[in-house]
Nucleic acid binder design. Structure first.
Lengths: 356, 356
DNA sequence: AATAATTTCGTGTGCGGACACAGGAAATAT
DNA sequence: ATATTTCCTGTGTCCGCACACGAAATTATT
């Protein structure tokens, strides 16, 4: 909690330093045309007192307009990215009065070329800041290099690429969320229980996120020496549910002691649907993210836990921090791991209702 | 997401309505001295367009100052109420620029008289709004009646009294949080497991909160027909830990199949300490709120789950909503149940680190 | 020493809205 | 018809800050 002294105005500083308001202003924004002597006088006062500008007056007076662009995957409604977009919209609304204009650009998350195309449009657009969902690693790095060379700040959302010189990243620690999932899923399973672990083949590569989650999951197992359980690794496809269903049916036929199952992407609803059809809702099931379908199966008792992360808030805070940096000249934290929210049938209602 | 048209100024409305800015201003604040004709003209324009005032300019120009008072229990550091206070402080900081001044008043939560004393001080103080932790029901109602008759708005924090005409309430649904606790605690316990349920005698009455939590807990048990477990109801005192310890030792001596324990107030750390001394950390233990000591035992693996609710945020939002109502003339939601956060060793770190 | 070229600095204006105040128009009183 | 009162309405000032412009002070040039 910083103590900001709202009482002190530029005018006061000017009086204290024995110069005019204009001079104080020049020092504050350090845009030159100030003698060493005056500058020193002002800076002395600034050190003594704790000046923090009146932000209302500042943005009222400033005629500077900022254009922010966010670059996210095109998506269906009720998708994970829908929430992210909601958060951006909400921030756009709140920060409009600070002369901030937020535009959205979409790319095809299954086609790196579309990312490249939109990237170059953005560069031409000369925005004041960019928010990026770095789905494609190399292509993102190309974009961020361009941005850095043009001194355009940018932030990552959802996941990050450490080498890039981003302002902030908001997102979950995927490894740890996999670890948490393991704890919830494997806690007090009977001996010799079998656990189905789904891996989804996807057009393009498997996402970093799901890989990290799985690593965290496996780490829990090795760390706790859980040799009394058996993992059944299943590979499902992203587009053919019939095949998936047949595969699952076979697995459940062949293995009589399956007690739990997990998938590391956000589409646990598919798995839930098949389990329900197979009448195996006794299987403890965990998934990620609050897609409508996922929530339905959680309330149904088919899914036991969902791990969530408020993607809308992540987007909102990303915008907020950019404003803090650019406009209010405040320090912001670079890497922000958001909480790993544990939802079950009994507590999801208030979680979803709660709007801040 | 409301579409606010930031472009339209009072000056524009004046031009459109064929009157002066002053007249528009008088209509907007409806402080009279306007002829029917002019008033109608302005109101016609106001209906056509979607005017929303520039809040920055408004609060910059306004010399109105607001004094808010919050009325909470005096407390130790690292207490539950400490977090509430932090939230108030944080709001005070953020809303200072809107000419809001927040004062804190404390009462002794074990002495209703102290509440009454501070109440009358507050009334004399003629604040613009009050935030109340309604620990003492009748005394609180006396206060709120006074406030209502003086048209001073107020909000509840932590718990609420339905009959009072409050602006907002932020808090957890205690009944449901007891229900969640039961689910977590009793999930897949072996047959004939014994469960220790602590009730804490307190100077003054048992708090509504803990009663509601316990009701929710019991409801889960009856709803799920858990006849295979045995509850051991223990009454601990609030001030003598030696007695408590001896009591627990006896209970554990006499009962050989204790698998779980729970306490419904925020002091699970005491229970944890005794269990650790008794070397019974195999017992699954659940408690409430992130007191430092509680967190310590969670990380220690003595406590399995903590249910939390971000009291600081509740306080912050309470202030925010009062501003929204009083200053920005926005609608606010009256009853706000906050999420029931489930914390365990594996996810508490990011939960605590995360500052918005 | 006089003038030109720079550097430094103070003042004025406007952002959008709140509010005070003066002065004009209409209504009433003389 | 003039004076007085009441009712309306337009204008001006201020809130704290950003920024432009022109004036003053300093330095350089002849």
């Amino acid at each position: 909690m910083k103590t900001q002294n709202t009482k002190i105005r530029i005018k006061d500083i000017a009086t204290l330093a024995g110069v005019s308001e204009g001079t104080v202003d020049r020092v504050l924004h350090n845009r030159g045309e100030v003698s060493e002597k005056s500058k020193a006088a002002v800076e002395k006062i600034l050190e003594e007192i704790n000046y923090s500008p009146n932000l209302l007056a500042r943005s009222l007076a400033s005629k500077k307009h900022y254009r922010f662009i966010c670059l996210i995957p095109a998506h269906q409604v009720a998708d994970y990215w829908e929430s992210v977009e909601t958060g951006f919209d909400s921030a756009a609304h709140d920060y409009l009065q600070y002369n901030i204009h937020l535009e959205k650009q979409y790319f095809n998350q299954f086609d790196a070329n579309s990312f490249v195309t939109v990237s170059s449009q953005i560069i031409q657009n000369k925005p004041d800041a960019v928010f990026i969902a770095p789905i494609f690693r190399d292509e993102t790095l190309n974009l961020t290099r361009e941005l850095t060379s043009r001194q355009i700040p940018f932030s990552f959302i959802d996941s990050m690429i450490e080498e890039a010189d981003f302002l902030t990243y908001y997102g979950q620690d995927s490894f740890q969320s996999g670890y948490v999932a393991a704890k919830l899923l494997l806690n007090s399973l009977p001996d010799n229980a079998q656990v189905v672990v789904i891996r989804t083949k996807r057009k393009g590569a498997e996402s970093n996120q799901t890989i990290a989650r799985k690593n965290g999951f496996m780490h829990f197992i090795s760390e706790n020496g859980l040799s009394n359980i058996e993992l059944l690794n299943i590979e499902m496809t992203d587009d053919d549910e019939n095949t998936n269903f047949e595969l699952l049916r076979e697995v459940f036929d062949l293995n009589s002691n399956i007690k739990a199952a997990i998938t590391f992407n956000s589409k646990v609803c598919r798995l839930a649907k098949h389990l329900k059809t197979l009448n195996r809702i006794d299987v403890r099931l965990i998934g990620y993210d609050l897609l409508e379908e996922n929530v339905k199966y959680l309330k149904n008792d088919v899914v036991s836990y969902l791990l969530a992360q408020r993607p809308d808030k992540q987007a909102y805070l990303t915008v907020r921090d950019m404003c803090a940096e650019l406009i209010f000249k405040q320090k912001v934290k670079k890497i922000n791991h958001v909480p790993i929210d544990i939802l079950m049938k009994e507590n999801i209602e208030y979680y979803m209702q709660f709007r801040e």
